[in-house]
């Protein structure tokens, strides 16, 4: 494996149907690198939840994935409404997603807790009215 690899994706916010395409590409790219399937799964799930969040709440954003020896970093950045109370947002079951999102299988208030559960490090930088950047790391 090369010493460092970087992938960048723009996440389209207008279309829930296509949400998750960037995560699928990341999963495929990481699989080609021959990494441990359990590590790939943790990265993929964390990014997928984050990507869905960006589509639901922030009209899309960007995803950057940095693969280094021993660590994968995922940076998800959006210019959405921001998170007013990060601690509350991290609670299992807390959600501000609209009802139509729940009928699509998401918005159960599990996204952020799942992202934390599957990663070794997670940091949320959010400013109301400006946007949110989430940095996650998975060690291997």
């Amino acid at each position: 494996m090369p010493e460092q690899l970087q992938f960048h994706y723009d996440v389209d916010g207008g279309n829930f149907t296509s949400a998750g395409q960037a995560s699928v590409q990341v999963k495929n790219n990481l699989s080609q690198l021959g990494l441990d399937p359990a590590v790939i799964r943790r990265v993929s799930i964390a990014m997928y939840e984050g990507e869905i969040n960006m589509v639901i709440h922030a009209d899309g954003g960007s995803a950057d994935i940095l693969v280094e020896d021993g660590c994968i970093t995922i940076i998800l950045a959006d210019k959405g409404p921001g998170i007013a109370d990060v601690e509350q947002a991290m609670q299992d079951g807390f959600s501000t997603a609209p009802d139509n999102i729940r009928s699509l299988g998401f918005g159960a208030g599990m996204g952020l807790p799942n992202m934390k559960r599957y990663t070794d490090y997670m940091k949320i930088d959010s400013v109301v009215g400006e946007g949110t950047t989430i940095t996650m790391k998975v060690n291997f």
Partner: peptide
């Protein structure tokens, strides 16, 4: 609920669902 599905990894699992969309 897909986020509930995503909460627990299972080994060689089948998903049963009544939800029909690409997610």
């Amino acid at each position: 609920m897909m986020s509930d599905v995503l909460a627990y990894v299972k080994n060689r699992a089948v998903l049963l669902t009544g939800l029909v969309n690409p997610q």
